[in-house]
Amino acid sequence: MRTIRLLVAKDLRLEWRTREITTTVGLLALLLVIVLAAVRPEPAAAASAMWVTYAFAATLGFARAFALERDHLTGLRLAGTDGGAVFLGKAVVNWVLLAVVQAVSLPAFGALFTEAALARAGALAAPLVLGGVGLAVVGTLFGGLIVQARLREALLPLLLLPVALPVLIAATSATAALLDGASLRAIGPQLQLLAAFDILFATASWLLFEFVLEE
């Protein structure tokens, strides 16, 4: 537990100092919101625009997160920490990154698509957080896997998007319903799915990460 906290603190501190990832990814995400709004500014398009943007941010941001280790996971390995702890540490950091993007872009969605995005921000937290966790968990697992592969930046979306499709489908559906005025109870099924996905894949990734870290 302490190891995880240390790992998270180290990565977050590093990121805070340079702010490379958050700035680039954040700006690109905002750019995407604007492009999507320019193309089709209807309130009905808001939910899918939001999740396309978050998926985009995830595929960009998570590939870079392991680059912090400069293509070698040796440092982490030598530290002797168990794979599960490393995974949780990285996944938390990735989730924070995504959450920042979600928070920062919400006003943009509110201004360009529908005011409901801001009006219902509280309720929206449910699908945004649950979906964000899902993306972070799978993104961290795959990000670690392809650290040394060729064309790493292109591989991550190719791997992440199909596996995370249930997240995108359920989260978009829930978001759209909330923006339309539905209650949290009404989106129960989607939230259940998201929670099930998060638990299943967090557990699987936690168990499998040993193999990701090996040389």
Partner: peptide
């Protein structure tokens, strides 16, 4: 090894 992880995750999905 990476492929094996994907092989497992895919079926779980």
């Amino acid at each position: 090894r990476a492929a094996a992880v994907i092989g497992i995750v895919g079926v779980l999905d």
